[in-house]
Nucleic acid binder design. Structure first.
Length: 230
DNA sequence: TAGGCCATCTGGTCCT
DNA sequence: AGGACCAGATGGCCTA
């Protein structure tokens, strides 16, 4: 008995986990085609100087420079031009990298939005922050898998025990905002794994008998999957 | 006004 | 060499 949308939730996660590379490829292709690198640097000064060299012969009646001096001046001009070119190339690379980084973060945000869209929406339309979205998704998936596990257990038993969702034990004692760890039942006896972002692994969540949450709570109490909210 | 969240830039590191 | 990824820095915006 899976809440509707779980399929798309998995799909979204798959997108989150695997879709990046494909998307990035597309975006990176777009990058290079849409980038506006407005570098206006030309070697004007250099070319000007080469067009109008301060020819000693034409000025002030100074003695004409020796070939060695001319060679040295030429080398100096070449070095300056080289440094300018290197600077421009570096700046160009940096801007391209910035653009890629921006796109990368946009892709990440798009994926987070996609993830938000398949998570149960909050009645008050509060947009989850990034960290909340990830934690919510993590707990939500974990609770859904618990639901499946419990449903399987239930099928295996001849008698129908009350349908419980042990995973929702996180509901009552959600950590405070900013807390990196979630409170999980200790001394639990089930075999499922807990959300891995929890710093302290709670071991396994409690068996369904230990907690009194109905399975429908998975659907209707989803807000409690977000540690730190409410 | 302080604190949280976010976008962006940036330099470093790793990988292909 | 170039791209992806990452983490730190910075500044803007919003809210209690």
């Amino acid at each position: 008995m899976l809440p509707t949308g779980s399929k798309s939730c998995f799909a979204s996660l798959k997108l989150l986990l695997t879709g990046f590379s494909a998307m990035e490829t597309v975006y990176s292709d777009m990058d290079t085609s849409s980038c506006d690198y407005s570098f206006t640097h030309t070697d004007d000064e250099d070319s000007r100087s080469s067009l109008h060299p301060a020819s000693p012969a034409s000025s002030c009646g100074k003695p004409p420079a020796s070939p060695a001096e001319l060679q040295q001046k030429k080398r100096r001009r070449g070095r300056a031009r080289n440094e300018a070119t290197v600077h421009v190339v570096k700046k160009n690379r940096r801007l391209k990298a910035n653009d890629r980084e921006r796109n990368r973060m946009h892709n990440l945000n798009d994926a987070l939005d996609a993830l938000r869209s398949v998570l149960p929406a909050f009645p008050d339309d509060t947009k989850l922050t990034k960290i909340e979205t990830l934690r919510f998704a993590h707990n939500y998936i974990w609770a859904l898998s618990e639901t499946i596990r419990i449903a399987d257990q239930r099928q295996n038993k001849s008698r129908d025990p009350p349908l419980l969702l042990s995973g929702l034990s996180c509901m009552g004692d959600a950590p405070s905002p900013g807390s990196d760890s979630c409170s999980w039942p200790s001394g639990a006896s089930s075999s499922s794994s807990s959300p891995s972002y929890c710093n302290s692994d709670p071991g396994s969540p409690a068996a369904m008998d230990d907690f009194g949450y109905l399975q429908t709570d998975v659907v209707y109490s989803y807000r409690n999957f977000v540690p730190g909210i409410y």
